[in-house]
Amino acid sequence: MSAPGGHAGVVTRSLAAAVDTAVVAMAVVLIYLGTAAVRFALMPLAFVWPRPSPVFSLVGATLVATAYLSVAWATTGRTYGGGLLGLRVLSARRGLIGWPRAMVRAVACVVFPAGLLWAAVSPTRRSLQDLLLGSVVVYDWHRDRGTRAMAPEEAPR
């Protein structure tokens, strides 16, 4: 079975988002453990586990998630979750969306993840973020950094 090549639906995109959430959570935990290790190395006798405030934690997690999504979408068009589910974020013209749109889309997705649910309602399977930024999420099962998915003449329906 080959990749359909069309716009991805809400189920696969939600699964990809869940995977990416887990990735961000792991990254946050690793950052926390790394910070603790540095603190232990610097002050072993006075070491206590870091206790960041909830706001700090929330902001930190948001920044990590935004950075993660921005880099992934700007460079390859897919996050780890997107790669696992065979998805790729492209512009309407089937190209990478670029750094500005990637960063705005990342912020929009982190701040208002519920916008993804519009993909279930939208006849073109586009989320609110997609409608806002003119992006699409397509099925791309190839491991060619999006070469085939980004070629409109070769994109099957």
């Binding site: 359909p4 639906g9 809400v10 696969t12 699964l15 696992l84 589910l85 099962w141």
Partner: peptide
Amino acid sequence: AVRGVRADGVQADEAVARFM
């Protein structure tokens, strides 16, 4: 395994789209 997950995801997408 990944191809299986992806195929199931595509079918689920189709099912959701038909339901909507």
